[in-house]
């Protein structure tokens, strides 16, 4: 067997994966061929060197970072289901209401919501919300330490802002479904204006930290949708009855 063929088998041989005759062939060659012996010796040295590389200890800040991100992600989660549902409802229902332009517009809207939601999967930007307000002097609000057991009051309190936000999200979602209906009756430029404003409000929600600021942003969206749906403010602004 050529040196080339032998060297191809070296890795398997050194790793103890060549059984019986194959192993014996390689062993036999190595006894006689200095070049291959050197190669085998080098590869073994390399393998052993790799195996005995010292473990790399992570910095202690790693665990803290993981916990902070988990907390942030959990908080961010709470409102996500509302959006999933909103998407589900918004997307398939659109064709029921009108054909043509509305469907296209609705598709754009759906696309828009989806791209807006995507960054949430990377909890990075939401990191700030894991850190509670500045610690008060007499009895500091606890930093997000190890996650409390589920069902415990601390866990419930920590989850509460997100739960409330979700309730606002649910309400907005219902209005969004209604908005799909009336939107079809508007002129194209009104639809564009509506989409643009929606996008703006959505951005506000995304940027607002979880808790009261984000709830406030949701309420603004709800008010806007009510204005559009109940009071026909958009249609009226465009001079359409």
């Amino acid at each position: 067997m050529s040196c080339e063929r032998i060297q191809e088998k070296l890795t398997a041989y050194l790793d103890g994966e060549l059984a019986g005759q194959d192993g014996s062939v390689v062993r036999g060659h190595l006894r006689e061929c200095a070049t291959c012996r050197q190669a085998a010796s080098d590869e073994a040295a390399l393998r052993d060197g790799l195996r005995s590389l010292p473990p790399v200890d992570p910095p202690p800040s790693l665990w803290a970072g993981v916990q902070a991100q988990l907390a942030a992600a959990e908080v961010a989660d709470a409102k996500r289901p509302a959006w999933r549902r909103a998407l589900a409802r918004w997307a398939p229902s659109a064709p029921r209401f009108a054909a043509g332009a509305l469907v296209a517009a609705a598709a754009i809207a759906v696309l828009w919501w989806r791209t807006q939601r995507a960054p949430d999967d990377a909890p990075g930007p939401d990191r700030a919300i894991a850190t509670p307000a500045p610690a008060p002097a007499p009895a500091p609000v606890p930093e997000p330490g190890p996650p409390p057991p589920r069902g415990d009051i601390t866990a419930e309190l920590a989850a509460e802002p997100a739960r409330q936000t979700e309730a606002y999200g649910d309400a907005a979602e219902e209005l969004l479904a209604l908005a799909t209906e009336v939107r079809g009756t508007w002129a194209a430029e009104q639809q564009t204006a509506f989409d643009a404003r929606l996008s703006e409000l959505r951005g506000q929600i995304d940027r607002a930290p979880e808790g009261r600021p984000r709830q406030k942003a949701w309420r603004e969206l709800i008010r806007y949708l009510q204005g559009a749906i109940v009071r026909d403010e958009i249609a009226l602004a465009g001079g359409v009855p």
Partner: peptide, 17 residues
Amino acid sequence: LADTAPAVPSPILAEPR
């Protein structure tokens, strides 16, 4: 790593890892 670190096998002899 400590509890899985193998005895360094002989470089030439084929041993199961």
